[in-house]
Design a binder for these strands. Structure first.
Lengths: 137, 137
DNA sequence: GTGGCACCTGGAGTCGGCTCCAGGTCAAGC
DNA sequence: GCTTGACCTGGAGCCGACTCCAGGTGCCAC
């Protein structure tokens, strides 16, 4: 206990919810920087890697494209002087998420009204369709 | 004025925001039932078609897959006796949208905390990075 | 010492959802 | 009567984001 933690691909997949293939894919395209290897050439993820993957998941799940995440990764790699750019990028994304939520709420309203419309149709003492109901087994 | 309204593909594209290709695609796969044609074989959309496209847009924009929309279209074509099923489908989707919004809000919180973290880093009287800043052109 | 397992690689394949294209038809305006 | 523009068709192509595969390595348990 207490030594520097290193996670196997399997553990990371388990923890982050990304598949092994996706982890390798992300490394290939440069969304993850090259992961450390053990003597046998197998990946050993650091806490930092896992933390970064948490960020990636967050961005991905809020609809950021890989291209944009790559941009963010690039900024992060470039060092401290890009922090303002990173804030700008994240703030823009935050606004995009806000818009996304607002749009969802609005469309959800329409769906709920449609549900209510159907409920109303059912509620009408529907003599018109009664025969159809009777024909049904 | 006052005759049965019929919209050209261009008008429908304009009104619904779907491209001409997408409208044709939706008809091909059966998400729209076959659209009426004029003498020259060109599509003339009815108010009903445009209304249905509005529903489709709503479902699509809230993340419903085409497969699921096809299921809904099928139910709708089958007639009045599927109304309960349609309510069930839409209610399930409504819940899915709710979950989606909740997830977005949660991830958005994480993003905002990250932004705050970066702001805090900038706020620190950063003697450590001052030299770097000075070296920069 | 042999089986099983977790991992490795490069490259090809898949899937959803469009989007584009070539070649053709009509109607209207000049 | 010819151009222009909006439309038509079937089919191919594209894009993003993975996902799968064949063939191979290293280690541990039995």
């Amino acid at each position: 206990m207490g030594r520097v933690t290193a996670y196997t691909p399997g553990q990371v997949a388990e923890e982050t919810g990304f598949s092994l293939d996706t982890l390798r894919y992300y490394e290939r395209i440069g969304l993850l920087e090259p992961i450390e290897r053990n003597a046998a050439g197998q990946r050993r993820f650091s806490d930092g890697d896992v933390g970064w993957l948490g960020m990636i998941r967050c961005l991905r799940d809020t609809g950021m494209s890989i291209a944009e995440m790559l941009r963010f990764a690039e900024l992060t790699r470039e060092g401290e002087h890009t922090i303002r750019d990173r804030i700008a990028l994240l703030a823009a994304h935050d606004r995009a998420v806000e818009d996304q939520i607002a749009a969802l709420r609005q469309k959800q309203g329409a769906i709920q009204r449609k549900i209510q419309y159907y409920r109303d149709v059912l509620a009408i003492p529907d003599a018109l369709y009664a025969c159809e109901d009777e024909r049904a087994s």
